[in-house]
Amino acid sequence: MAEPQDETLSPPVCDPPSGTLGGALPADFAEVYDLHGQAIFYLALRLLGDPVQAQDAVHDVFLKAFRKYGEFRGQSEVRTWLYRITLNHCSNLRQAWAARNIHTVADESVFETAGAPTSSPLRILETKELGERIQRALDGLPAEYSLLLLLVADQELSYEQVGELTRQTADAVRGKLHRARKAFTLAFAKTA
C-alpha cells in the first residue's frame, strides 16, 4: 500500500492568522474559510461520497491549514494549497477504507469503446436526486477522470494548476478531459 501522503507539502507563505471573533474562527482565517469552504466541502463530498465523512474531512483540512497558515506566501495560491491538502487527506482516508474493504475498480476500457448516448439525456426532478446521480456517475468513473472533472469544474483553477494538483502537464489534462467528459456523460445516463 502507498504511504500516507504529507498533506501540507510546500505551503505558500504569508502572515499567520490573528485575533478571534469571540469563539468563532480567527478573523482572517474565517475569511479563508468563507472564500474556499464551499469548494473544499464539495470536493471532499464528491471524492468520499459521504456527507458526514466530508464534514469531518473539511474540519481536518482547515485545521491543518490553520496550523500551517503562517507559511502562506500569498492569497492567490491558497485555493490550490487547500485543494492539495484535501486531495491528500481524502486519498489517505480512501486508502485506509480500501484496506478494510473489498472494492472494484472501474474498467477504463469500457469508456474508451462505448459510443456517445444517442437517446434523450437524463431528466432530474429534484436537487437531491441530481446530487445522488452525480455521485453515482462519478463513482462509476476511473478515479483519475472524476478528479479531473471536479478540479476543472472550479473556474478559479487553470489547467496548469489542475495539472500541478494531479501531477501531470496541462496538455495531459486537456487530453484526458475529453475522455473524462465522454465517460461521465455515459455514466450519468446510466443513473436514470
Binding site: 464539495y42 472533472l149 476543472v152 472550479d154 461521465f184
Partner: peptide, 24 residues
C-alpha cells in the same frame, strides 16, 4: 459539459454551519 453540471451542483451544495463551529 459535465464540469458545468458539477459547477451547478456545487453552487447548490452548502457546507453545514456546524463545520465552522466545530473548527473554531
Amino acid at each position: 459539459h459535465p464540469e458545468d453540471l458539477l459547477r451547478h451542483d456545487r453552487s447548490r451544495t452548502v457546507p453545514p454551519a456546524a463545520i465552522a463551529q466545530r473548527l473554531a
